[in-house]
Write a protein that binds this DNA or RNA. Structure first.
Lengths: 80, 80
DNA sequence: AAATATTTGTACGTATGTATG
DNA sequence: GCATACATACGTACAAATATT
């Protein structure tokens, strides 16, 4: 799974979709650490700001919790 | 009083503000011991480096004096 | 004198927050 | 959207100074 820059959907939404799917299918379990921005940048070839934007989106949706200096984790209470 | 990680003000400044206020209203009197880093960490749930940064800020302002192995104390001469 | 506990000092690695070009 | 730089923060480990036993 990678980012398609020719798709209509902006990269940060694509990336959010990828991670959201990993959470929904249990690849990323509640409480588990979500790959850091640096990892996402390296893995998907996006800019850090883009990775952040994707994570912020997932945070607003309730899929993850973000804490400075600590990292991003999958929420214990996933949205329905 | 606790730390709000969503506030615009960074935690170390918030913590400094809390202690500064305790000094100004006499809760912490001149010569008295300021809670150790370990205590601040436990009480406010911040990292030790963050507690230290707050104390160093108060030291630069003249509110406290810091001494290795001895602890932090409220200055005898408080700033105006 | 010596061992132990407490406290501050320093350093490293890693992560997020924000601002600028 | 990307690249870069800097600020802030967490965790951990060890060093140094002081106090206590």
């Amino acid at each position: 799974v990678s980012i398609d820059y020719d798709a209509g959907l902006p990269p940060y939404r694509q990336l959010a979709g990828i991670i959201r799917e990993q959470i929904r299918n249990g690849e990323l379990a509640p409480g588990q650490v979500v790959p850091s921005y640096a990892m996402l940048v390296q893995t998907y070839g996006v800019a850090r700001v883009t990775a952040r934007k994707a994570i912020k989106l997932l945070e607003s949706e309730g899929y993850v919790t973000v804490a400075q200096g600590w990292g991003t984790h999958v929420s214990d209470q996933l949205p329905s």
